[in-house]
Amino acid sequence: MTRPDPTGTLARPPTRFDKWADRSFRGLAATSAALAVLLVVGIVAQIAGQAEPAVREYGVDFLTTSKWDPSGKKFGVLPQIAGTLYSSVLGVALGSLFGVTVAIVLTQDFLPPRLEAVAKGVVELLSAVPSVVYGLWGIFVVIPALRPLANAAHETFGALPIFGTRLSGPGLLPAAFVLAIMVLPTVTAISRDALAAVPGKLREAAFGLGATRWEAIVKVVLPTASRGIFGAIVLAFGRAVGETMALAMLLGNSNSFSWSLFAPGTTLATLMANQWPESGAVEKGALMYAGLVLLGITLLINSVGTLILRRTVRVEEAHQ
């Protein structure tokens, strides 16, 4: 029974258990938050720790030499770094071209709202397909479809370095093609936000001056949203640099760099995925070093992308 109280109230101050539970739960939440920060520190520390012997052994030469020879204990990732950047640039360029166009179509009243929602859903589902399934699809659909075109291009323009080889199987072009599909949802989603944030009155002003729809888009809307779109492309680049499975399945495993779109290639991530299963302790150390390099590159790219996008938000807030 509640004890009689001269004031007649049933209100009681919080019990000791209430207070204890409150303190503990808040402590637990703060600890979880702190652990999330520590996790990233831990990731960097673990990978760096594992890579340390290799860093000591191979030093900067690791970044500037081209040999991957586990039996001779010689390791260099220059072709991988070059290949990572080359394939990412190609994939992101293609993906951005399509991704930004789709974002324009989805935001500038081209489609009736219902169709717009459907198209948006389809693009989002593109990002739900696992990388390994894109790889499988690439092997059995993209490579056979591209091969005759690629070989025709080689026969006709073979003098140009980018068409310098035949596409016999895995190669840079199918890899970049699939990479483009995989980064498209990222580019579209972030660009769409940037385009949608452009004030309607700016567009109206352009229309009021007699601009056609595309003149308004190209001269007013795109420049206003350019920073957000640029941020989207940078973040997509960060994703492309770290993409592993689809590239491991479509790029081949060549350990050398070629400018030809049809030659097999290599990246840091695919090197790790391809070499790991058969690697010994020494090679694992070198692969950890490669991982550390990849970590540095992605952290750099993602920080730049996040900063660009954060600046756009601030600019928009300042305008309000």
Binding site: T9, A11, R12, P13, P14, D18, K19
Partner: peptide, 9 residues
């Protein structure tokens, strides 16, 4: 004074 106790009363 505990504000929680105040709000209960």
């Amino acid at each position: 004074v505990d504000p929680v106790a105040v709000r209960r009363a």
